[in-house]
Amino acid sequence: MTQRSRTLSVAVIGAGKMGADHVRRIDEVISGARVAAVADVDAERAKAVAARVDGCTAHTDPAAAMAAADVDAVLIASPGPAHEAALLTALEHDLPVLCEKPLTPDPASALRVMAAEQRLGRRRVQVGFMRRYDAEYLKLKALLETGQLGRPLMLHNRHRNVASPPGWTSEMLINDSVTHEMDVTRWLLGHEITAVTVLAPTPSGNAPDGIRDPQFVVFETDGGAIVDVEIFVNCGFGYQVQAEVVCERGTARVGDGHAMVTNAAGRWGGIIAQDYIERFTDAYDRQVQSWVDATRRGEVTGPGVWDGYAVAAVCEASVRALEDGGRVPVDLVDRPALYA
């Protein structure tokens, strides 16, 4: 669809926390789009979310939602293992897609999606690495691109959650959380990650049994930078995402949350967000609006299938480093011309 005056009709796949929030976002916050269909394996949940939007149909089969009347774009917010099938179906119908991270859970499935998109001969998929749309990260990226601080030498990241969801494993700290820092590293520095080392202290007493939390992840890049990530998903006090770039002639840091500091009753301080939706609401809004605007122009912008594949490859190496110890190289296929 290329007519800018026409409203984009979107099928949302997945009606859990993230999918339901995207339905709200499209219906109430952004412009130029409407939710035409919702799909979820839980029929009652799909019906409940679809009922909030006039004219929205509910489905249990993603393919049926994509085939619903007037659907001309897809937003995938289902669990990662279900992404490949939904993506391949969308590509079979030549539908533009915004897919929440991960693109797919592993490099092999990501390569299958890449092959399907290459057969179309044009990009159709954007991956939901929403930090690229956060105001603070955008300022940091713009500053680095000026070159005034010189070459980036190191990047320090902290990623903390109040508590891990039920059923989490040690590997999920990497596959479900550090994935964001993997993409941020590649985007901010313009480098590919070439090797990973994962260190883990004695687990916090707040971590559920069997979970190695926190972890300290170290990336090496093809641009000669060293990157570290502290991932701590049971810190207990709030949700924090921070990044500091150390360059040849200065440093720059984001994520300190100093929008407002109060002084009262003998104390000073601010508020710490309690989850990712609260911290990154504006970024999600900008991301979806940008995707809708680009799709209505007949374009695909933002992180794509190559970015999703590269992160999946870093995840695979990181899990090996966590399980086996030591430094693990990251192996990437040659980058296809479509993603140059």
Rank of each mutant, 00 (worst) to 15 (best):
A273N: 14
R160K: 14
N263E: 11
P214N: 05
W291P: 03
G224H: 08
A195E: 15
P107E: 04
G150S: 10
A110N: 05
V305N: 04
P203E: 05
I271N: 04
D331I: 13
T7E: 15
A225V: 01
Q126S: 15
R158F: 01
A273M: 10
Q240W: 02
E117D: 11
P203A: 09
L111N: 00
V38M: 05
H191R: 03
N175L: 06
G16D: 10
L189V: 13
T202L: 06
R253M: 13
R132D: 05
E316A: 13
H22C: 02
W168L: 03
H22P: 00
M154K: 14
L91E: 06
V198C: 08
T262I: 11
D176Y: 07
M1E: 09
M172A: 14
Y137E: 07
D134N: 14
T301M: 01
T89H: 08
V218Y: 08
G190V: 12
K17Y: 10
A115D: 12
Y309T: 06
A46W: 01
M172I: 02
V184T: 05
Q126A: 15
A11W: 10
R124G: 07
I272S: 11
P96V: 09
D331V: 15
H191A: 14
L88D: 03
G121R: 09
G298Q: 12
F237P: 00
V330W: 06
G255L: 08
V241N: 05
S78V: 06
H22L: 09
H22E: 02
Y339H: 09
V196Q: 08
M1V: 11
R132M: 08
G210W: 12
N263K: 06
A108E: 15
K47P: 00
G302A: 08
S5K: 12
T60H: 05
E117F: 03
F219W: 07
V254L: 10
I271T: 14
N157Y: 13
P165Q: 04
A200H: 09
L189I: 12
V218M: 10
A68C: 04
A58P: 08
A207Q: 02
I26P: 01
A264D: 12
A294R: 09
S204N: 07
L111I: 00
T7L: 14
A82K: 08
Y276S: 14
R279F: 01
Q242T: 13
R52F: 03
N157Q: 13
L199Y: 08
E44W: 01
D256V: 04
S170K: 06
E181R: 11
E44P: 00
Q3H: 12
M130K: 06
A15P: 04
I271K: 10
G55S: 07
Y137I: 11
P166I: 01
I277H: 15
Q118A: 08
L189N: 11
V74G: 01
W306D: 01
W306R: 02
R45K: 15
T2V: 14
A310M: 05
D42W: 07
G266Y: 05
T57F: 10
N161C: 12
C56F: 06
H258N: 06
G19L: 07
I211R: 03
T179S: 06
I174K: 07
I272E: 07
D54L: 11
D209Q: 13
M18I: 12
A273S: 14
V35K: 05
V330N: 06
A63D: 12
C235W: 02
A116R: 10
R112M: 01
A15Q: 03
L138N: 00
V198Q: 08
R24L: 08
Q126W: 01
A73H: 04
D70E: 15
W268L: 11
A135E: 13
